[in-house]
């Protein structure tokens, strides 16, 4: 069935569908609905919701619940995510699965509450200390919020690693029809968990490795796991990319705008196409390079001063010119604006 649903609410519904019965969080605009709906819904299916005293505490409660074998989630926005980085590093170090949602707002500092994509570095490139990666998924619709959150739980468990839903105020706040059915959820066994039972008594959750050799071994183990994840989990979609002369690259809300830009441009006889990374880590580098082969140029559009841009350049490795257009501060370009910009840049070349 379909129900009109807000993006942030779809995340909570996805969590419940995925069998998550633990939510620990702290309110922040524009992510507060996640905490509010978790507070309303999760206790009604026998789960735990707790508003922590801070994001620092919240992510450590997530660490505790994950240690105990629970599917667990927290949600926040940029400033809160900054506070959670320590905890996320510990989660990765201790190989604990968890789902973290970042509904990105304008930064740095207090910034504002309007949408940006300026947490890309903080989430995709690490943010916390040490050699670790987050699995990062970027929804572009309410349905995506639902599907990718369920996927995030599965990937987090599969790789025993934190998975982040990186979205923005627009996707979080907007309402669209959500196709939702009851699903059978298979949760993996977690024989490593510490549950306060005889069977789990021998278990230890830790990220400390005292000797250099021990830590190297551990980091190499994580590295191998991340390589496996890179091999299996890169996700993307394309739109009219087959015959595109200019390939637009954008994720999240921007990919929606760019889809409309492609339509407008095609009406004007300009062959644009779209490449939308769905997983930001692992980045679909190979797919992007393949898709871009036939194009003359690639153009990245981002709500940041050029963060994902670096991954696009790495993926293309100098084989194509990469142009860049961005809006920040909470401004989101319209499809017409991007179209006009591309047109103006082409004119300038003539």
């Amino acid at each position: 069935m379909r129900q009109l649903c807000k993006g942030n609410v779809a995340i909570v519904k996805a969590a419940i569908t995925a069998g998550c019965r633990s939510y620990y969080g702290y309110p922040i605009t524009p992510a507060s609905e996640i905490a509010e709906y978790a507070a309303l819904l999760i206790p009604q299916v026998g789960g735990t919701f707790l508003q922590a005293e801070s994001e620092v505490a919240a992510i450590n409660m997530v660490y505790g619940a994950s240690s105990a074998g629970q599917r667990v989630m927290t949600g926040s926005s940029g400033p809160g995510l900054s506070l959670m980085q320590e905890g996320i590093s510990y989660l990765a170090g201790a190989e604990l699965p968890a789902v973290v949602v970042d509904v990105v707002r304008g930064g740095p500092g207090l910034g504002n509450i309007a949408p940006e994509q300026s947490d890309y570095f903080a989430v995709v490139k690490g943010g916390g200390h040490g050699n670790y990666r987050n699995i990062v998924l970027a929804p572009a619709s309410v349905q995506d919020m639902y599907e990718l959150t369920i996927l995030a739980f599965e990937l987090a468990d599969k790789y025993r690693n934190p998975a982040v839903i990186l979205t923005d105020g627009f996707v979080g706040q907007m309402m669209e029809p959500l196709e939702i059915e009851e699903r059978e959820v298979k949760q993996p066994e977690k024989p490593w968990a510490v549950k306060g039972t005889a069977e789990t008594r021998k278990n230890l959750i830790t990220s400390i490795q005292l000797s250099a050799d021990q830590l190297e071994l551990h980091v190499r183990h994580l590295e191998a796991k991340y390589k496996e994840c890179e091999k299996n989990e890169a996700r993307y979609e394309t739109y009219m990319a087959d015959d595109a002369e200019i390939l637009l690259v954008g994720y999240g809300i921007v990919s929606r705008v760019l889809r409309s830009t492609v339509d407008i441009a095609r009406q004007h006889g300009m062959k644009l196409g779209l490449f939308r990374p769905i997983s930001l880590w692992p980045y679909p580098s190979k797919a992007l390079a393949d898709t871009a082969k036939k194009c003359s140029k690639v153009m990245v559009v981002e709500l940041s001063t050029g963060q994902m841009l670096e991954d696009v350049k790495l993926a293309l490795n100098g084989t194509k010119p990469v142009d860049f257009y961005s809006r920040v501060g909470g401004n989101v370009p319209s499809a017409e604006e991007v179209h006009a910009e591309i047109f103006a840049r082409m004119e300038a070349l003539v």
Binding site: A52, V56, G64, A65
Partner: peptide, 28 residues
């Protein structure tokens, strides 16, 4: 020789909170 969880500096009560709530029979 019990279940063991190592926590970040200062965060043990937060970790303990969720451990105990996740498994109410545990002694944390």
């Amino acid at each position: 020789d019990t279940g063991n969880v190592q926590a970040a500096h200062g965060r043990a009560p937060a970790v303990a909170t969720a451990l105990r709530r996740s498994n109410p029979e545990s002694i944390v």
